[in-house]
């Protein structure tokens, strides 16, 4: 295990050191005293295990491919944004836009997620141990979101595809989001993933999918569009 003390380093210097250690063959790296700064451990393209010993600011672990990142604290906006593959685990809560636009991999938030978690996801899995905020899964295109707690308003709004499972209450479904029946094997798979990450989820989940009404232009709306333009 290699350790970097972030205290007196610039963010650029921290990320350069991480990259250099990985190039030199390091498999496990610990970042101490992260001071909740932004852009830590971004664009890591290997499966190195990086642990950040505290909270982080915006975009931690973003644009990565393969990284195994653990954040022992909370994360700010856009954690793991644009990730291709790998695993990002946040012990605390996450800010807006967690796992935005990820194409693959797994993001685990043990605490609560804020607004627009999983926005525009194109694959992968977002697992939320607590509650999730407004517009979770907005315009999601593929992948899965599992919410163990409650979901805020406008859940899965304008989703193309993708699946959202919710264990708790749903404040309100978004545009064109509809309830669906979860198959036993889907639920078994969720339970397996929860167990894998040590998240104690509820016994039952409800499944939300796209109603597919927004996929095609609806002629009945023509008058509304004419008025708008």
């Amino acid at each position: 295990m290699k350790t970097i003390d972030c205290t007196s380093l610039s963010t650029r210097a921290i990320n350069e050191q991480v990259r250099r250690l990985i190039a030199d063959g390091a498999r496990e790296i610990l970042l101490r005293s992260p001071d909740a700064r932004h852009n830590l451990a971004v664009a890591i393209l290997t499966d190195a295990a990086i642990t950040i010993d505290g909270s982080v600011g915006y975009y931690a672990g973003g644009m990565s491919d393969g990284v195994r990142l653990t954040i022992r604290g909370s994360a700010g906006w856009g954690v793991a944004e644009g990730m291709l593959s790998g695993t990002v685990v946040i012990d605390g809560n996450a800010g807006n836009g967690a796992a935005a636009s990820i194409r693959g991999g797994t993001v685990v938030i043990r605490g609560d997620a804020a607004a627009r978690a999983g926005i525009a996801m194109k694959g992968g899995l977002l697992l939320i141990g607590g509650d999730t905020g407004y517009m979770t899964g907005f315009m999601m295109q593929r992948g899965r979101i599992v919410v163990c707690g409650n979901a805020g308003p406008a859940l899965a709004d304008s989703m193309y595809e993708g699946i959202v499972f919710v264990g708790g209450e749903i404040a309100e479904l978004g545009n064109d989001a509809v309830m669906s029946d979860a198959a036993p094997e889907e639920l078994a798979e969720i339970r397996a993933v929860l167990g894998q990450h040590g998240v104690k989820g509820p016994d039952a989940f409800r499944k939300v999918v796209s109603g597919r009404k927004l996929w095609n232009y609806d002629k009945k709306e023509l008058e509304a569009w004419k008025a708008a333009f």
Partner: peptide
């Protein structure tokens, strides 16, 4: 002091 828990305010 360390040990606090931050959360993002809701909509």
């Amino acid at each position: 002091p360390a040990g606090y828990r931050a959360r993002e305010a809701g909509a």
